[in-house]
């Protein structure tokens, strides 16, 4: 029986493992950066219920259906629900976190662009899920 060289197979294994290691490390790194909440982030409690969002700031101010934040500051959302599963989504800032009753999920962001951005629910929660929306108002934080 002739002995055949298997360098081609080793190269194939090397390429596959390299690709998986690269993809894995890039994804792990992105998650590490995105999940690292700055220590000075202002906490905002987000409560979802059928079919609207309530926001409570650190100073006790409560907003319903809209949220006012400033540029240049970090905000940490503690997201929960009062009834069924919802999902808190600010599409333009890639903020997406499930609102689960009895549980607090955490997500943070630091807005950079002044303007109005839609907030929506991204987990089917009943008849008016499609219209469970809000508005994020980002104001200039330098003034």
């Amino acid at each position: 029986m002739g002995h055949h060289s298997n360098w081609a197979e080793w190269i194939y294994i090397g390429v596959v493992i390299s690709l998986m290691a690269w993809v894995g490390s890039e994804a792990w790194n992105a998650e590490r950066l995105v999940d690292h909440i700055p220590a000075d982030a202002e906490v905002i409690k987000v409560t979802g219920q059928q079919w609207f969002w309530t926001f409570e700031h650190e100073d006790g101010t409560i907003e319903k259906g809209e949220l006012h934040v400033k540029t240049g500051k970090a905000y940490k959302f503690e997201v929960t629900s009062k009834d069924v599963n919802h999902s808190f989504n600010i599409h333009d800032y890639v903020v997406l976190m499930d609102a689960v009753p009895g549980r607090i999920n955490t997500v943070w962001f630091a807005p950079t662009d002044v303007g109005e951005f839609p907030i929506q629910c991204r987990e089917y929660c009943g008849l008016i899920h499609y219209n469970m929306r809000g508005t994020l108002y980002v104001e200039d934080g330098s003034t």
Binding site: A27, L33, V34, P38, A74, V95, A110, T112
Partner: peptide
């Protein structure tokens, strides 16, 4: 990670 110098999650996630 200083105030005003936070990572932009949009950039990280979309680049990934």
């Amino acid at each position: 990670d200083e105030p005003g110098q936070y990572v932009d999650r949009r950039v990280i996630i979309w680049n990934l």
